[in-house]
Design a protein around this nucleic acid. Structure first.
Length: 460
RNA sequence: GGCCGGAUGGCAGAGUGGUCAUGCAGCGGACUGCAACUCCGUCAACGCCGGUUCGAUUCCGACUCCGGCCUCCA
């Protein structure tokens, strides 16, 4: 039985989809004006893992994740770069897809763009205006009337009057109420814009997700996810708009992943303390990032540091070392390890426990290998299958262990030559020369492993 | 100020009302020419104060500290 932590109730709940066997999931994607940072990576990987496990559990999943390609920051950045917003967003979407595939994600079933849903957005705002849930202010912008939505604040346990007490001074006096938010924004001179009943302009940030999710998955669907910083105001506002426009409940399970921190502070664009995925990939295999993310439960905060990456790397190496040179059976036999894996993942996607099952499997496989036991290929197959469910261990172990992203200096041929010389030295009992060669290679980042079968090596 | 979450062994990170997380590091041993890899063994923790209980790290309450959101941000 799959249990899911629902932000709405603050509890783990049994997962029951609206339509038996089928699941609709909408996840808020990125605003594409810059490269993805590690925080984006975490959100993308978290929901990829969630999607994989929902499918593994036998559900027919429709996974939709939007792309926000119209926004103030896009307009600003494009102007700075002296390019059109469209050229900027297309570049960034391409970069995001590349990053994501490197990180081992499967792409969502559908990635709708805001600009492709302009008519649906305008239609939804019209409905809200007609029903009295929205109004046009004196500046031309159209606002949502938060007071009219009785349940406003239910996702974040906030009361409208409490929020007003602590609200900052609002310059936009065109609002009836400081908590009201923009649905349609009038275009300034020269800005990208669309025609609407309220004049030329562009959609506010929240309405696009309501329009796209409603059009892709219907007015009422199962799961809506996103990063921790979207809980408020974005998701709160989405609920208000969608429920008022569609006249039905919006989402049954709200899911939010935890933040990535740097030096105990949230990694965010506004703080400027972010690392892009591309930065990290210059020094680490992308699977190391994935392993780091999966080592924590998706809701827990993760501390990002050089040390946490190194630990993830060491853990992955242990797994790949176990698989190295090991034959797999064609057929996968689910043993108690699979059962434990499934139990862990059914408990709100507990990947750290799932990983611990993998490590237990690694130990048993290592023992089986050492004694050349018959069940080694069976264990290796199970390890490989379970890891694949998390998007891990998909690379050739030999390749993973022998190639560093840094790819510094010494070639494979040179390494092999030195190893051959060392083997001869060892035969001659010339251990001084043997150790000298090993030290020399070690300085180049090469670790030697002697075994009965001979000497192999890995690159750090 | 309001709301939400957290405090676990040297570090990372799960979990449970009463014998095991797991990984890294440490210690002892096996393997090795010596190492590395691997295996076996081992050490070690539950912020603080009360309460419930035969028994609490786990449940309840107070306290302290930390983080997030309340403004664009995955």
């Amino acid at each position: 039985m799959l249990k899911v932590y629902n932000t709405l109730s603050g509890k783990k709940e049994e997962f029951v989809p609206l339509v038996p066997g089928k699941v609709g999931m909408y996840v808020c994607g990125n605003t594409v004006y810059d490269y993805c940072h590690i925080g984006h990576a975490r959100a993308m990987i978290s929901f990829d893992i969630i999607a994989r496990h929902i499918r593994f559990s036998g559900f027919d999943l429709n996974y939709v994740r939007n792309i926000t390609d119209v926004d103030d920051k896009i307009i600003k950045r494009a102007a700075e770069n002296d390019e059109t917003p469209e050229s900027l967003t297309l570049r960034m979407i391409e970069a995001q897809t590349q990053d994501e595939l490197k990180l081992g994600n499967k792409l969502p079933d559908r990635e709708p763009k805001a600009t492709e849903f302009m008519q649906e957005i305008i239609d939804m705002i019209s409905v809200l205006v007609d029903k009295g849930f929205a109004y046009q202010g004196s500046t031309g912008d159209v606002y949502f009337r938060t007071e009219k939505h009785e349940a406003y604040g239910k996702l974040n346990n906030r009361k409208l009057e409490d929020m007003l007490a602590g609200a900052r001074i609002d310059v936009e006096s065109a609002k009836e109420n400081p908590a009201d938010f923009v649905l349609w924004k009038s275009a300034k001179e020269g800005e990208v814009h669309w025609q609407s009943p309220w004049g030329i302009g562009r959609p506010g940030w929240h309405i696009e997700c309501s329009a796209m999710s409603t059009n892709c998955l219907g007015p009422h669907f199962d799961i809506h996810g996103g990063g921790p910083d979207l809980k408020f105001p974005h998701h709160e506002n989405e609920i208000a708009q969608s429920e008022c426009a569609n006249g039905t409940d919006y989402v049954n399970y709200w899911m939010h992943c935890g933040a990535v921190r740097v030096n105990n502070e949230k990694m965010s664009k506004s703080l400027g303390n972010f690392f892009t995925v591309r930065d990290v990939l210059e020094k680490y295999n992308p699977e190391v990032i994935r392993f780091l993310m999966v080592s924590s439960q998706y809701r827990s905060p993760i501390d990002y540091s050089e040390q946490s990456l190194l630990e993830a790397k060491v853990g992955l190496e242990r797994m790949y070392t176990s698989l190295q040179g090991q034959a797999l059976t064609d057929d996968y036999i689910a043993s108690s390890y699979t059962e434990r894996y499934q139990q862990a993942m059914d408990d709100d996607f507990n990947t750290p426990v799932a990983i611990s099952v993998l490590f237990d499997l690694v130990r048993e496989l290592n023992k089986a290998k050492a004694s050349a036991a018959d069940n080694a290929p069976i264990l290796a197959k199970e390890l490989s299958v379970l890891a694949e469910l998390l998007g891990l261990l998909g690379q050739d172990p030999e390749y993973f262990l022998k190639n560093s992203v840094l790819n510094n200096g010494i070639s494979e041929a040179e390494i092999e030559t030195l190893i051959a010389e060392r083997i001869q030295a060892r035969k001659d009992k010339n251990f001084a020369r043997s150790d000298e060669i090993r030290d020399e290679l070690s300085e180049q980042g090469i670790t030697l492993l002697d075994s009965r079968e001979g000497t192999s090596w890995t690159r750090r």
